[in-house]
């Protein structure tokens, strides 16, 4: 029964989702919208409690066991608690303060201020690391160790030359050739992968809806 109920829910919602896509009847479309937006949002809101519980449990366990680098766990817990208190009691908007004052003189510690001045710059810093990782990855990829790597290097070299004014000076048809590499062989291989992906998604979805694939239930095929 523990397995049968989730399987029945998946079967019914899966079939309903597929039917709603093809049936233009307003009542079915509305029900589908409610399922996709409202029901999903409610489930996500509840699951967030599980997520927060997991973070707290994970880090408290680390602190209790004095695991490797356990002092970092204090930082996570303290940051989580402070941010949650400010977020819950400090009001949603800077112009509409909550029960907790979020400004001391000119210093603001409103949730929006914390987000804009801490989360956004930190995320941007991580994102900017991508530039350095790209150069190290490109160095590794462009070492002509075998035929595939040599082809990759050659294609990248032509594309880079085609994208800069120097390429036109070398040969007037080089930019067009670079464009052709992007538009024809590149698109063809991408579409080939896409065909496989779409068929894979279709087959996996069917297997899940019909209860053939049960790995997500935690019990493999049994």
């Amino acid at each position: 029964m523990q397995r049968r109920i989730p399987l029945i829910i998946v079967l019914l919602t899966g079939i309903f989702g597929a039917v709603a896509f093809f049936v233009p009847y307003p009542a079915i479309r509305n029900a589908d919208e409610i399922m996709r937006n409202d029901v999903q949002r409610i489930i996500t809101a509840f699951s967030l409690v599980l997520g927060v519980g997991s973070i707290v449990q994970h880090h408290l366990l680390k602190i209790r066991r004095k695991a490797q680098f356990w002092p970092y766990s204090y930082i996570t817990i303290v940051a989580l608690v402070i941010t949650a208190i400010i977020g819950v009691f400090g009001g949603i908007d800077v112009t509409r303060p909550g029960v907790l004052p979020t400004r001391v003189g000119n210093f603001s510690f409103h949730i929006q201020t914390i987000y804009s001045n801490m989360m956004v710059p930190l995320a941007a810093t991580m994102f900017s690391l991508l530039a350095f990782f790209m150069s190290s990855a490109a160095y590794r990829a462009f070492r002509a160790r075998n035929l595939e790597a040599t082809l990759l290097l050659l294609a990248a070299f032509i594309l880079m030359l085609g994208a800069v004014p120097l390429g036109r000076f070398i040969h007037h048809r080089l930019p067009a050739f670079a464009e052709w590499i992007l538009a024809v062989p590149n698109t063809a291989s991408k579409r080939g992968i896409l065909f496989g992906v779409e068929l894979g998604i279709f087959a996996t979805s069917l297997k899940i809806i019909l209860g053939i694939e049960r790995g997500w239930l935690g019990g493999g095929g049994k």
Partner: peptide, 17 residues
């Protein structure tokens, strides 16, 4: 044990970090 699987964050780059 409960510590094997854990939730980190739903923020893309915070998760990457």
């Amino acid at each position: 044990h409960q510590d094997i699987v854990f939730f980190v964050t739903d923020q893309q780059f915070a998760f990457a970090a």
